Lab assay of single mutants.
Amino acid sequence: LKKVVALYDYMPMNANDLQLRKGDEYFILEESNLPWWRARDKNGQEGYIPSNYVTEAE
Rank of each mutant, 00 (worst) to 15 (best):
K22L: 06
E58K: 13
E56P: 13
R40V: 12
A15S: 13
S51K: 13
L1N: 06
G44T: 02
S32N: 12
I49A: 02
N33H: 12
E25N: 08
I49T: 01
Y48D: 06
L7T: 04
Y10V: 04
V54W: 02
K22E: 06
E31F: 11
E30K: 06
A57W: 13
A57N: 08
E25G: 04
K22V: 08
V54F: 04
E31R: 09
P35G: 15
Q19N: 06
D41R: 02
N33K: 12
Y26G: 01
R21F: 13
K3L: 10
G23P: 00
K2D: 02
E30T: 07
M11D: 11
A6G: 02
W37P: 09
T55F: 08
G44A: 04
F27Q: 07
P35L: 15
L20I: 05
T55V: 14
T55S: 11
V54Q: 01
K2M: 08
P50A: 04
G47K: 01
Y8S: 07
V4G: 02
T55C: 12
N33V: 09
K3M: 09
N43D: 13
N14G: 12
K2W: 06
M11E: 14
D17H: 15
N14H: 14
Y53C: 09
N14M: 08
S32Y: 09
Y8V: 08
M13P: 07
I49V: 08
F27I: 12
A6H: 01
F27K: 03
Q45L: 12
T55G: 09
N43A: 10
D41G: 05
V5E: 04
N43T: 09
A57P: 12
V4N: 01
E25L: 14
N16H: 13
E25Y: 15
Q19R: 12
T55I: 14
A39G: 05
Y10N: 02
K2A: 04
L20V: 04
R21Y: 11
N52S: 14
P35E: 15
V4I: 04
D24L: 08
T55W: 08
R38K: 15
D9N: 09
I28K: 02
A15Q: 12
M11G: 05
A57R: 10
L18R: 00
D41K: 02
K42I: 10
E30D: 15
V4T: 03
E56R: 09
K3P: 04
L20G: 01
K22I: 07
Y53V: 04
L7N: 05
A15Y: 11
A57G: 10
D41F: 01
G23K: 03
P12F: 02
A6T: 01
E30L: 06
L18P: 01
Y10D: 01
E46I: 10
V5G: 02
R21V: 15
E58H: 12
Y26I: 05
T55E: 10
Y8L: 10
E31V: 11
N33M: 10
L20W: 01
D9M: 03
G23A: 03
S51T: 07
Q45A: 12
K42L: 10
K2V: 06
D17Q: 15
K3S: 06
L1A: 07
V54K: 00
V54Y: 02
E25H: 14
M11L: 14
I28G: 00
M11C: 14
N33I: 08
T55Q: 12
L34S: 15
P35C: 15
G44M: 05
R21Q: 09
M11V: 12
F27N: 04
E31N: 11
K42E: 09
L1H: 09
Y53E: 01
E31G: 09
M13Q: 14
A15D: 12
Q19Y: 07
M11Y: 14
E46V: 10
D24M: 09
D41P: 00
A15C: 12
P50C: 13
S51Y: 14
Q45R: 14
S32E: 09
A15E: 13
L34W: 15
P35H: 15
E25S: 10
K3N: 04
W37K: 06
V5Q: 05
D17S: 09
L7C: 08
K22M: 09
P35F: 15
I49M: 03
N16P: 04
M11R: 08
R40Y: 07
V4Q: 02
L29R: 03
E25A: 09
L34H: 15
L20N: 00
L29F: 06
A15L: 10
Q45T: 11
Y53N: 03
G44F: 05
V4M: 08
S32G: 13
L7P: 01
Y48C: 13
W36K: 14
Q19E: 14
W37M: 07
G44W: 04
K42N: 08
G47F: 03
D17A: 11
S32T: 12
L1Y: 10
G47V: 01
I49L: 06
Q19G: 10
G47S: 01
D9A: 04
K42Q: 11
Q19H: 09
K22P: 03
D17E: 15
K42C: 09
N43F: 13
E31H: 11
F27W: 15
E56Q: 11
D41Y: 02
P50G: 03
N33T: 14
L18C: 02
W36H: 12
Y48W: 15
D24F: 09
G44S: 04
A39K: 00
G47T: 01
N43S: 12
G23R: 03
R40S: 06
D9F: 03
G47A: 01
E58G: 14
K2T: 06
L1T: 08
A57H: 10
Y10T: 03
M11F: 14
P12L: 02
R21M: 09
V5F: 08
I28H: 00
N16M: 10
K42P: 05
S32K: 08
G44V: 00
K3T: 09
E56S: 13
G47M: 01
N16Y: 12
D9E: 05
Y48G: 03
K3A: 05
N14V: 06
Q45H: 13
Y48S: 05
E56A: 13
N33D: 15
E31D: 13
D24S: 08
V54S: 01
L7E: 04
M11A: 13
I49P: 00
E46S: 06
N52W: 15
N52F: 11
Y10H: 05
K42F: 07
E46N: 04
Y53Q: 05
Y26M: 02
